[in-house]
Design a protein around this nucleic acid. Structure first.
Lengths: 261, 261
DNA sequence: CTTGACCATGACGCTGCGTCAACCCTCCAT
DNA sequence: ATGGAGGGTTGACGCAGCGTCATGGTCAAG
């Protein structure tokens, strides 16, 4: 008659595991000797080994009991279920591996490579690091809402970077938000440039937002994001409204009906 | 300002998940409105999306906080660690899949195919189902102790099945243990055959147990297993001892020094 | 005013054990 | 006989990442 330690060693498991199997009723409690020790016979050893064989094959403990009693067809069915489950798990983990490999490649973090490239270009044309981070967060919001459309928009956005007006805009904005001034007169100039660019994009129909235009939430978040990053952005929003545009970031073809006073 | 439900919907997670991230300090608690509701700004949305991006890539929540603050090299290092971990997990699951496929193939359960074949042959030569199950459990015990050696032993065991003496032995044993008689005279005959076979195996050195012979535990378990399956096996053990053999199943070249009286 | 959809906190459940804690039992060497 | 090492016993918390009640307050619409 074996003690729990000897039983566990024979089957190649821990003592704790054996006690756990008792607790969940997978392995019946054996008789105790005079001092209260569990004493195991050879059938317990066989049972334990068979339990471990199934457990090592990925069978959940909760199903092992039934499987050991099942007939051939029930057994085969259960095996199939478990194999399918294992396959799904493996697939999930492999998807994770691909994703983490992408994270390692670019320092992307939730953004497609086109956007990363766009952000790099922004740095090149003189946008401050804070500006670029703000843009990045903005695109994260967009990419979360329209993961597929974002990649379609990027070529147009990247092409815009060749426009000297836009380059000037980003430089002015970078300087304004880098400075400590409470109210910068250059905000007016920035607003003028933005309004011009918006007008241009509107008439040429360059950027087609399509049905996305009906979902205001992402654009509201973009505006709020800018204001949260720097309260002076609120002033810029107001200036844009004065010029008839619904918001700072909303350069879509949807002018306010009448410019508010 | 978003409610928790809106925030969760935007980031594609459950409300419960967001609260969980608060609880573990991964996402800072936002301000509450007059009625105690959490109200989220756009930076919270960005944070949550970045958290989910890492989590979906298989990064444990406990490490996401550090990763979001890490510099490029620290980040890359962490990514490598996590990828290794994912690789190990996938490997484990694939091992499980192979094992479960084997379980499906034969109805083996902890036994190599050679043993399965041997058990089938036992059925063919007329061993009762109970006998075969007993043998199966015995081999499970052997295979647990010497997984590699068992496969080497099987050709010899299978060859033995051609011996008419052994065929006769299994038939007699099957009949005895299938009957209700308390003490069957054929036990003597069985013991005689077994002793003869043991003698034969001993002199011919057919089965070489080698160093395994020094570990008594598995053999003791085999004996006890038989007795537990049917108490009448005890009588057989006694008869074997009378004939100078250490046990029923122990047909190894280790006769007792002197047959006990 | 009611109803249904959301919000809040708190607590248990799941999987398969690992790891104390606090105490008892056995065996072996002195 | 005694002391210490190395077993055994039960009980309880911990882990990862939330799902799922339970119970109760809040908000918006009919």
């Amino acid at each position: 008659m074996l003690t729990i330690g000897q039983l566990a060693a024979y089957a190649g498991v821990t003592v704790r595991a054996v006690r756990h199997y008792h607790q969940i009723g997978l392995l019946p409690e054996p008789q105790r000797d005079a001092s209260g020790y569990r004493r195991y016979g050879p059938t317990a050893v066989v049972s334990l080994i068979r339990i471990r064989t199934l457990a090592d094959a990925g069978v959940p403990l909760s199903q092992i009991g039934q499987m050991l009693e099942a007939d051939a067809s029930t057994f085969a069915e259960a095996v199939h279920r478990i194999d399918s489950h294992l396959r799904d798990e493996i697939e999930r983990l492999e998807t994770s591996r691909k994703q983490i490999a992408q994270l390692a490649a670019g320092d992307s973090l939730a953004l497609p490579p086109e956007v990363i490239y766009y952000l790099d270009r922004l740095r090149e044309i003189g946008a401050s690091e804070r500006m670029v981070e703000g843009e990045r967060d903005g695109w994260i919001l967009m990419a979360a809402r329209w993961p597929d459309r974002v990649r379609e928009w990027m070529p147009g956005k990247i092409a815009q970077l060749d426009d000297p007006q836009l380059v000037r805009l980003y430089r002015i904005l970078s300087e304004i938000f880098e400075s400590d001034a409470g109210d910068d007169p250059r905000l007016e100039e920035a607003a003028d440039i933005m309004a011009g660019l918006a007008e241009q994009a509107y008439t040429s129909g360059e950027i087609d937002l399509g049905e996305e235009a009906h979902d205001d939430l992402p654009f509201d978040l973009l505006d709020a994001l800018a204001v949260e990053a720097d309260p002076r952005a609120q002033r810029l929003l107001d200036l844009m409204r004065e010029r008839g545009w619904a918001s700072w970031t909303r350069t879509r073809p949807e002018r306010l009906a009448e410019p508010p006073d």
